[in-house]
C-alpha cells in the first residue's frame, strides 16, 4: 500500500498495491471459508481453530494499533455476518488486534513459531473471554435474556477457550508463515 505513487506507470492490475490488497483479501476469504468447515484433524470437542483470530494476530504483529483495530473491525463484521450479530465479534477481534500490536515484542518475544503460537494462544483465550463477558452482561442486564445462567456460560467458556486456544495456536504457523512472507516481500521489493 505504501508504494502506490512510485509504480503508477504500470497498468492498474500490475501495481504492487493492487496485487497486495487482492492477495490480502483472498487470504481473508480463505479464512472465512475455513470457518464453517470441520476438516478431520481441525476439530477438538466440536471446536475448530479460530482462523480469523489467527489472521488478525498475523496482521497486527508488525503493524500499528490503528491498522490492527481496523482489521479487527472488518473481520469481526464478517464473522457477525456468518453467525449472529449479537453479541458482536468485532469487539473481541479489535481487542485482540490492538493488544497484539501494542505487545512489546522486541523485548519479550522473538519472531518464531513458538512466540506466534504463544500470542495466538493468549489472544484466543482473551477473545473468548470478551465474548463471554458480553453474553454475561446481556444476561445480567436484560430481564428476558435467552442466554443460560452465568455459571453455565463460564463453564462453557472454559471448554471453548481452552480448545480454541490449543487448536488455533497449533494451526497459527500454517497461516502466519505464508502471510508474513508475502507482506514482507511486498514491503521490501521497491
Amino acid at each position: 500500500m505504501s508504494l502506490g505513487v512510485r509504480a503508477s506507470s504500470l497498468p492498474l492490475w500490475r501495481q504492487p498495491w493492487v496485487i497486495n490488497s487482492l492477495a490480502t483479501a483472498a487470504s481473508v476469504l480463505v479464512c472465512l471459508l475455513l470457518l464453517p468447515s470441520r476438516i478431520p484433524g481441525m476439530e477438538l470437542l466440536g471446536v475448530a481453530p479460530h482462523w480469523l483470530l489467527i489472521w488478525v494476530v498475523a496482521w497486527s504483529i508488525k503493524r500499528t494499533q490503528w491498522e490492527a483495530a481496523v482489521a479487527g473491525l472488518v473481520l469481526g463484521l464478517l464473522q457477525d455476518a456468518m453467525t449472529s450479530p449479537n453479541p458482536t465479534h468485532t469487539l473481541s477481534l479489535i481487542v485482540v488486534g490492538v493488544l497484539t500490536a501494542r505487545l512489546q515484542k522486541q523485548r519479550y518475544l522473538q519472531e518464531d513459531i513458538v512466540s506466534v503460537a504463544l500470542i495466538v494462544f493468549a489472544m484466543a483465550v482473551i477473545a473468548e473471554t470478551v465474548l463471554a463477558l458480553q453474553i454475561s452482561f446481556d444476561q445480567l442486564v436484560s430481564a428476558n435474556s435467552l442466554y443460560p445462567p452465568l455459571g453455565r456460560i463460564w463453564i462453557y467458556h472454559q471448554r471453548v477457550a481452552l480448545s480454541s486456544a490449543i487448536l488455533s495456536s497449533l494451526w497459527a504457523p500454517a497461516l502466519y508463515y505464508p502471510l508474513n512472507h508475502w507482506w514482507e516481500r511486498y514491503a521490501a521489493e521497491p
Partner: peptide
C-alpha cells in the same frame, strides 16, 4: 469496512454461496 458491513447486512450470503 463498507464491504464487511454489506456482507453483514445480507447475513454473509456471499460467503456461504462461495462455500
Amino acid at each position: 469496512i463498507s464491504s464487511a458491513w454489506l456482507m453483514r447486512a445480507n447475513d454473509g450470503a456471499v460467503i456461504y454461496e462461495t462455500y
